[in-house]
């Protein structure tokens, strides 16, 4: 479904993505992890062109995303994106947040959009909050609405950029539950996360990144039990036993 071909990206002199090549198939659940600054957020943001690339190509269903003249809006309506900071629209109700894109881009009538949105809100467990304002919701609830909002366009692919990093610990579970639900329904997911439990249980594949490169690709079992690359081993060691004797 997604193919990275020798992708490179620079921020000025800083080489953020280095010779990235990878294929992600339909129905796969891929978790991207690594230390901060490794380029994982940048990588996922290039998939829907929130970040540009400097060389190489990224194709989605065979179409080159970064080619000039591409209808980026149409492409983006087929890719759902969930942000770390939820980014719900504060001036619209929960329901309206979810019906905006289907009506404006998807061409649905208000009634159709409403029905679709309510079904999705039901699915994430927030149908009773349809007429609430985002500011009235907790972080976990807002993120679940954000997921519903992204699903409203029925995209074949969902991208998650550290979806639980901004949440208080007690709310992480409810969001992960929704994500597991999506996996059960066969959705293609690419998730950047620190939640190793989720990765271990749900992912089909793990991509470990450091300093702009994908250093290891493995199934969760292989990755957690027998990491190959030394930096991957370091990363896992740091997670399990935080380095208190640092500096």
């Amino acid at each position: 479904m997604i193919e990275f071909n020798n992708v490179n990206k620079w921020y000025g002199k800083y080489h953020a993505l280095i010779d990235v090549s990878e294929k992600i198939g339909k129905g796969e659940v891929v978790v991207v992890c690594g230390p901060s600054g490794s380029g994982k957020s940048t990588l996922i943001r290039t998939i829907n062109r929130l970040e540009a690339i400097d060389s190489g190509s990224i194709t989605f269903d065979g179409e080159d995303i970064h080619a000039p003249g591409v209808d980026i809006n149409r492409l983006r309506s087929r890719i759902g994106f969930v942000f770390q900071q939820f980014n719900l629209f504060p001036h619209l109700t929960v329901l309206r947040n979810c019906t905006l894109a289907p009506q404006a881009v998807g061409g649905l009538s208000p009634a159709q959009a409403r029905d679709k949105a309510m079904a999705l809100l039901e699915r994430v467990g927030l149908a009773h909050k349809a007429d609430a304002w985002p500011s009235e919701l907790s972080g976990g609830q807002q993120q679940r609405v954000a997921i519903a909002r992204a699903l409203a366009m029925a995209p074949p692919l969902m991208l998650f950029d550290e979806p639980t990093s901004a949440l208080d610990p007690e709310m992480v579970g409810e969001v992960l539950l929704v994500m597991r639900d999506l996996v059960r329904d066969g959705m293609t997911l690419v998730v950047v996360t620190h939640e190793m439990g989720f990765a271990r249980d749900v992912a089909h594949r793990i991509l470990f990144m450091d300093q702009g490169r994908i250093l290891e690709r493995a199934t969760p079992r292989e990755f957690f039990d027998h990491p190959q690359h030394p930096r991957a081993r370091q990363f896992l060691a740091d997670i399990r036993t935080p380095n208190t004797a640092a500096d």
């Binding site: 829907n48 929130l50 809006n73 149409r74 492409l75 983006r76 309506s77 087929r78 890719i79 994106f81 942000f83 900071q85 980014n87 719900l88 629209f89 905006l100 894109a101 404006a104 881009v105 954000a146 909002r149 992204a150 366009m153």
Partner: peptide
Amino acid sequence: PSGQYESARALGLGHGR
């Protein structure tokens, strides 16, 4: 906040919309 514009575009809304 810039995240608002990003999430609007990520949904497929054009710049004007």
